[in-house]
């Protein structure tokens, strides 16, 4: 397999043929903000937080979708990129109802930590305060649409890893929302196996374990990498 050498933020980095800029950067310990990409799941390129500059190209590129190429010169951290990311995070915050102080993942939320890393101390937009619902019909899990950013990580984990495809996105624009089966209550879902992969993959407090009090739920989508290594390479630990 051929290997490419490229420059990311002034550092020489190697990437395998077909590897994305995001994966190459992460292998080298360079952190590019992201909310929708998860190692081991397909990448929808939905959140646009991972946009980077590539020398010689006048368009910004999504690092999670763009393949690393020989000799590429990539910059992941410029003031323009930072401004754009701030804007995106502010839009996400204004779009839903994000009240961190009473959230199960307060302190462990990817949206919250990204906002902090980008110094988002206020939101320049009028919050929409949409009327959204919470589904507590499942025995062990809850789905709080107020905190959902529609990254579709849960949808992909459920479909691509568990194979149940219980979850999907219904509606469009401001009415878009995550559904279970035919938008029945989650607890009545025929296809859900109760595996919890969606909950662990969700970057926010939208999907949560019911028995956790505020600020006590840590998540880690790294388990997906483990499952894939076990399936493909027979590496379990």
């Amino acid at each position: 397999m051929s290997v490419h050498t490229l420059e990311i933020d002034g550092r020489m980095v190697t990437a395998l043929e077909g590897e994305t800029i995001l994966a190459a950067a992460e292998d080298a310990g360079i952190f590019i903000p992201k909310l929708c990409a998860v190692e081991g799941l397909s990448a929808p390129g939905a959140c646009r937080l991972c946009m980077v500059e590539i020398a010689g190209q006048n368009k910004l590129r999504a690092a999670c979708l763009t393949r690393a190429a020989e000799g590429m010169v990539v910059r992941t951290e410029t003031s323009a990129l930072r401004e754009q990311r701030k804007l995106l995070v502010e839009l996400l915050l204004a779009e839903g109802n994000h009240v961190c102080s009473v959230c199960v993942v307060n302190g462990y939320c990817e949206l919250q930590s990204l906002a902090a890393a980008l110094d988002v101390d206020h939101v320049r937009f009028t919050p929409r305060y949409p009327a959204r619902t919470i589904d507590l019909s499942h025995e062990r899990f809850g789905l709080d649409h107020n905190r959902c950013i529609l990254c579709t990580r849960c949808v992909r984990a459920c479909d691509e890893i568990e194979g149940a495809h219980t979850l999907d996105v219904a509606g469009r624009g401001r009415t878009a929302r995550i559904i279970t089966d035919l938008a029945e209550p989650w607890g009545h879902s025929e296809s859900c196996t109760g595996c919890g992969k969606c909950v662990r993959t969700c970057p926010t407090g939208a999907l949560f374990l019911k028995n956790k009090p505020a600020a006590e739920m840590k998540k880690d989508s790294g388990f997906i990498r483990q499952i894939i290594a076990a399936r493909r390479e027979k590496i379990w630990i």
């Binding site: 495809h165 219980t166 999907d168 219904a170 509606g171 469009r172 559904i179 035919l182 296809s191």
Partner: peptide, 22 residues
């Protein structure tokens, strides 16, 4: 109806509703 269609076309029901509501 959507459940019937999902079965016949071998699609997950949530996909059928997702497309229909789009």
């Amino acid at each position: 109806l959507m459940r019937h269609i999902a079965r016949k076309l071998r699609l997950p029901p949530s996909r059928v509703l997702g497309v229909a509501t789009f």
